[in-house]
Simulated assay, not measured.
Amino acid sequence: MSSSSSKQELPLKQIPGSYGLPFFGPIRDRHDYFYHQGRDNFFANRIKQYNSTVIKTNMPPGPFISSNSQVIALLDGVSFPILFDNTKVQKHNVLDGTFMPSTSFTGGYRVCAYLDTTEPNHAILKRFFINILLSKNDSFIPLFRNTISDSFSELEDQLSGENGKSNFNAAICSAVFNFMFRLLCDDKDPSETNLGSKGPGLFDKWLLFQLAPLATLGLPKIFNYIEDFVIRTVPFPFCFAKSGYKELYEAFSKEAKTVLDEAEKVLFEMIL
């Protein structure tokens, strides 16, 4: 008997784990995840408790932002490929886990990352992105190399300064933004646009207010429940990021002519 047929005949087992009581279970798991155990121990403890690397659990942010916190966690290399099986995994509005930020942050649209693979627009948009990357194949690597090189030169200048310190995260975030902007905007340097040097900061702010419920500030324990109440009771409204989003929108609208011309063709295809 072949090994493949043996695997098919293995008996099915119930997935271990627990979601706990409605409302209270997700909050308990959320506090364990962020404050009592931490991310790594949260999963490690449950693997040990249930003697399994595939478990049922709740994931942040939970009530009231997420209407359903229940997930099945795949915590080993053998089960992980199941995530790529579209017949077994539903990918509707789950880019950020168990909740979806307001579409106000994305111009009122459910962007490709939130679409399930069964939705017609998913294939159209995915093909558009792949075609854009293919059209940039000659400039992708050189542009990336130059951007990273400039970033490390900046870090070296900071290290050789009076303080002898550098901010690696800020430099890399800036490099990533500059690379993506120049890639999509025909090699236009964002510092030469209305953004100036503000682009990375505006992008981080736009992202922050969407993903805040999935983060923690690392405050002293006495403030844990205050933090939890503030950032995980209701989602942050778009108005906090609106002005920065408008600046980003205007910059890309003006400079990304080639990409936007192709996007118009895709939009026409989606309408039809």
Results as ranks from 00 to 15, higher is better:
Asn167His: 10
Asp76Met: 03
Arg28Asn: 07
Gln90Gly: 01
Gln8Trp: 15
Phe24Gly: 06
Ser243Met: 02
His122Thr: 06
Glu255Ala: 09
Ile132Gln: 11
Gly201Asp: 06
Asp186Phe: 01
Cys112Ile: 06
Asn51Lys: 15
Lys136Leu: 11
Asn45Ile: 02
Asn178Ile: 01
Gly97Trp: 07
Thr193His: 09
Ala241Trp: 03
Gln158Glu: 15
Tyr225Met: 01
Ser197Met: 07
Asn167Ala: 11
Ala123Tyr: 01
Lys221Glu: 08
Phe168Ala: 08
Arg39Ser: 14
Asn178Leu: 02
Tyr50Cys: 05
Leu12Met: 12
Glu255Met: 04
Thr103Pro: 01
Glu119Lys: 00
Asn68Val: 03
Met180Asn: 14
Asn58Thr: 10
Asn51Gly: 12
Val176Gly: 00
Met180Asp: 14
His92Thr: 03
Phe128Tyr: 06
Ala212Lys: 11
Ile82Cys: 05
Ile124Lys: 03
Asp189Pro: 03
Asn224His: 12
Leu74Gln: 04
Phe43Gln: 07
Leu202Lys: 07
Ala170Thr: 10
Arg232Thr: 11
Phe252Ser: 06
Thr147Gln: 13
Thr98Pro: 00
Ala215Tyr: 08
Ala215Glu: 05
Pro213Phe: 02
Lys188Cys: 13
Arg145Glu: 15
Gln14Asn: 11
Ile27Arg: 13
Ser153Arg: 08
Ser2Gly: 05
Lys242Gln: 05
Phe152Ile: 14
Leu159Gly: 06
Ser160Ala: 08
Leu217Val: 01
Asn169Gly: 11
Glu255Ser: 14
Tyr35Ile: 01
Phe34Gly: 08
Arg182Asp: 08
Gly244Val: 05
Ser104Met: 01
His31Val: 15
Arg28Met: 13
Phe209Leu: 00
Asn93Lys: 05
Ser3Gln: 09
Asp261Gln: 13
Leu75Ala: 09
Phe43Asn: 12
Leu125Val: 04
Pro190Ser: 08
Leu207Glu: 05
Ile82His: 02
Phe43Ile: 08
Pro142Met: 02
Asp187Glu: 15
Lys126Ser: 11
Lys188Tyr: 00
Met180Ile: 10
Gln49Val: 09
Ser191Thr: 14
Ala123Ile: 06
Gly199Val: 09
Asp85Tyr: 00
Lys198Thr: 11
Ala241His: 04
Cys173Leu: 09
Lys48Asn: 12
Ala171Arg: 14
Ser135Gly: 10
Arg232Val: 09
Asp85Ala: 00
Asp157Val: 12
Phe238Gln: 08
Val176Leu: 12
Asn68Ala: 03
Ala175Gln: 07
Phe128Met: 02
Pro63Ile: 07
Pro81Asn: 03
Gln37Phe: 07
His31Thr: 11
Glu262His: 13
Lys188Gln: 14
Phe84Tyr: 04
Phe177Gln: 05
Phe80Ala: 14
Ser160His: 13
Lys88Asn: 02
Tyr33Leu: 12
Glu154Leu: 15
Pro220Asp: 00
Ile55His: 13
